[in-house]
Simulated scan of single mutants.
Amino acid sequence: MFTGIIETLGIVHLIKKNQDNLDITIQSSVTQELKIDQSVAHNGVCLTVVAIKNDLYTVTAIRETIEKTNMSDWKTGDIVNLERAMKLGDRLDGHIVQGHVDQTGLCTDIQQASGSWYYTFEYSPDLGNITIEKGSITVNGVSLTVVDSKEHSFSVAIIPYTHEHTNFKNFQIGTKVNLEFDVIGKYVSRLYQKK
């Protein structure tokens, strides 16, 4: 389980196809603190550490994960948001994040406002995911509050700290992002559909 509070950034060092899987090697400032079999969220995707060497560690993504996320677009040199799993007893500064991406979305608008940024994202309606204003959403692993919720799109406001310390600063119109919708909202929506 994660909180959506990004701990650090990592750099994609190597991507190697392994049958239907991808072995992805990341360079990170927290590598020395990791251990084999530990979960780390990469742009919101929970992956298991399978190898460590110096400041590099490797994770493996299976086909289902690759198909549901933006990982197929990753390339060497890309910057990814990293968060280690939360410790029991830690503060939950963001919201409950599982690290299970629901679908991808596209950045459709970026507006700079005096000292902050507004990003708008669209997503496909095919999976029935929803947002609500003032509800939680995870974009590339970052826990955010929905500012403007519309049918199949939403906006979020980014403060300077988040802009500087995540890969939001690299987003452009058309950037594909990983979306994890609020877990409580997903359960409520599913229960409502069954009635």
Rank of each mutant, 00 (worst) to 15 (best):
K35C: 08
Y192W: 07
T145E: 04
I173Y: 03
R84G: 06
N18E: 09
S29Q: 14
E151G: 14
I52W: 01
T25F: 08
K195A: 13
F2Y: 11
S116W: 11
V101G: 00
E122H: 13
N21Y: 11
V147K: 11
I96C: 10
T138K: 02
Q19T: 13
K195Q: 15
I137F: 00
K87D: 08
N170H: 11
Y187T: 06
S72Y: 14
I15N: 00
V101T: 05
Q27K: 14
V59W: 05
V142R: 01
N129M: 09
S124W: 07
D37Q: 13
M1E: 10
G89T: 05
F121G: 02
G105E: 01
Q98V: 07
S114C: 09
D78N: 12
N167E: 00
N54V: 11
S149P: 14
L179N: 00
N167F: 02
Q38N: 08
I52F: 00
G10M: 03
A113W: 15
D93E: 05
E151H: 06
E7Y: 10
I5P: 01
K87E: 09
I173H: 07
Q172Y: 04
R63L: 14
M86V: 13
D148Y: 08
N70D: 04
Q98I: 06
V188M: 10
K194P: 05
E67N: 09
G135K: 01
N54Q: 08
Q111A: 12
L9S: 03
V97Q: 01
T162C: 03
V177P: 05
G99Q: 02
E180T: 04
L14N: 15
K169G: 03
K87P: 12
I15A: 00
G135E: 02
L88M: 12
I137D: 00
Y118S: 15
R190L: 13
D93A: 07
G44V: 01
L9W: 02
Y123C: 02
G185M: 09
S72T: 14
L22R: 06
K53W: 12
T25L: 12
E64F: 12
V188K: 08
V30F: 14
E64R: 06
E180F: 07
T58I: 07
E180A: 03
S72G: 12
I184A: 10
L56S: 01
D23W: 04
T25C: 14
S136D: 03
H163Y: 10
T65G: 02
S149N: 06
I132T: 11
H163M: 09
T145G: 06
H163G: 05
I159D: 03
E33W: 08
V188F: 09
V30R: 12
K150T: 10
L47F: 04
I110R: 07
F181N: 03
K186M: 05
Q32F: 08
H152E: 08
G115Y: 04
D93L: 10
D37N: 13
A113V: 14
E164F: 13
I62C: 12
D73Q: 13
T25Q: 12
E67Q: 15
C107V: 15
G89F: 10
A51R: 13
I66L: 12
